Simulated assay, not measured.
Amino acid sequence: MADITVSSTSEEGFSTTSRVGEFELTIDATNENGPDPNQTLVADYASCYIPAFRVGAQQNDYDDLGKVEIDAEADLDDDDDLSAIRFDMRVEADIDGDEDTLVETGEEICHVHSALKEELHADISVDGDAF
């Protein structure tokens, strides 16, 4: 039995609607009716990395990071395949000196990070005490 099931349907064109449990997500290769697959992957990566970073912070005695934001950027090659991903993070808490440790711990915990080929792992910069 599968741990995750998704039902995806495309009635016409290049837009696909996926049902994940009770949620619905529209992804459109033309970027007209929703984000395209590459945009969705980058957003999914960032959305997975933030809670992983929070868990890693808790494991390193930071119980409350406050607000955490990621501005994600990605590069595409000539075939429109992702070739690089970058995260610029801002963290409300003062984590001065522990950024690298927290980034590494977050990478170890993040499921999307683990699923991507290594050359697509995000290049992450963190700015603590940012808000």
Results as ranks from 00 to 15, higher is better:
33 N>E: 12
38 N>I: 15
25 L>H: 07
89 M>G: 06
28 D>F: 13
21 G>Y: 07
64 D>S: 03
94 D>P: 03
1 M>H: 10
6 V>S: 12
38 N>W: 10
43 A>E: 07
118 E>W: 09
21 G>Q: 07
19 R>Y: 08
97 G>K: 03
27 I>D: 07
15 S>P: 10
83 S>F: 09
54 R>D: 06
73 E>W: 11
82 L>G: 07
2 A>F: 11
123 D>I: 08
86 R>A: 15
97 G>N: 03
75 D>H: 15
105 T>I: 02
114 S>K: 10
111 H>I: 08
94 D>R: 02
122 A>I: 07
129 D>S: 06
107 E>L: 02
50 I>F: 05
41 L>C: 06
108 E>T: 04
129 D>R: 03
85 I>P: 01
30 T>E: 14
66 G>V: 04
50 I>H: 04
114 S>F: 04
2 A>E: 10
37 P>G: 13
42 V>F: 06
131 F>W: 13
92 E>Y: 02
31 N>Y: 15
100 D>S: 08
19 R>V: 15
10 S>N: 14
90 R>A: 12
62 Y>N: 01
112 V>K: 01
83 S>K: 14
77 D>G: 09
84 A>G: 11
30 T>P: 13
115 A>F: 05
38 N>P: 13
51 P>L: 01
106 G>M: 00
27 I>P: 09
